[in-house]
């Protein structure tokens, strides 16, 4: 169980998260929705170690792990697919994946297996990572995080800027990931999609949790209210 307890996060003087309680159980898929600037990315980045956090505000199976650097969190099985894919342009697709495999945990998701599961990605392996379409880049970015063999995969803005077909491809890959028992946290612009792909959801508003619940019982009027804060 990965959870945050009264998590606060700051960028300089600006406070982005206020006492956020959030949790995701092993194998569960949780959607994180909210308007731009609500703090969704900040929440994921705090958990992944890219934004400073107090020790006791993030717990993995009861152990306080807040504020540790990315490398430590990766070693505990927490991987982030960053917003905007952020593949390394000087590296080929294969090199992007090899780098992650070597620095991550040993496990079932090897580069070889990823190529086998995704022939599209294998056919692109010699290409520089930026000479791909947005959808292909997103697949590679997820593969890069998978190659570190996470137990918790945090996906930021997973479908932003992708064509509908590419979005379906991305979710097809995530479905496979889910079958392996990896917990997913999805930040998704498309609220309907987010709710249909997840078991539980959290809606953030201006750095606070405005609403949470089971995705299949989400009341759209309440979600809209929590989303826009009106």
């Amino acid at each position: 169980m990965l959870r945050t307890e009264r998590l606060c996060a700051h960028y300089g003087l600006l406070q982005a998260l206020f006492d956020v309680d959030f949790g995701v159980a092993p194998g569960e898929t949780v959607a994180l929705i909210g308007a731009n600037g609500a703090g969704k990315s900040t929440l994921l980045r705090s958990i992944a170690g890219a934004v400073p956090a107090h020790r006791d505000t993030i717990k993995l199976d009861g152990m306080a792990i807040g504020g540790d650097p990315e490398r430590r969190q990766l070693g505990r099985g927490i991987a982030l697919v960053p917003e905007g894919r952020r593949l390394f342009p000087s590296l080929t697709v294969q090199e992007n994946l090899l780098l992650a495999e070597r620095n991550g945990r040993p496990g079932p998701w090897t580069v070889r297996r990823l190529f086998k599961e995704l022939p599209v990605v294998e056919s692109l392996r010699k290409r520089p990572a930026t000479a791909l379409s947005g959808g292909q880049q997103q697949l590679v970015a997820i593969c890069r995080a998978l190659a570190t063999n996470p137990s918790y995969l945090l996906c930021d803005e997973i479908s932003l800027g992708l064509s509908p077909i590419a979005v379906d491809e991305v979710y097809a890959l995530l479905a496979k990931v889910r079958l392996e028992g990896i917990a997913l946290v999805l930040v998704e612009q498309n609220v309907r999609r987010a709710l249909s792909e997840s078991t539980r959801y959290y809606c953030l508003l201006k750095g606070h949790v405005a609403l949470e619940g089971m995705s299949n019982q989400a009341d759209s009027a309440k979600v809209t209210q929590a989303y826009f804060g009106v």
Binding site: A48, G49, A50, P69, E70, R71, L74, G75, A79, L80, P82, R86, F88, L99, A100, N103, G104, R144, T148
Partner: peptide, 9 residues
């Protein structure tokens, strides 16, 4: 920043 995310120290 992204390099740190893939475990580079």
């Amino acid at each position: 920043a992204t390099a740190r995310l893939v475990g580079i120290n």
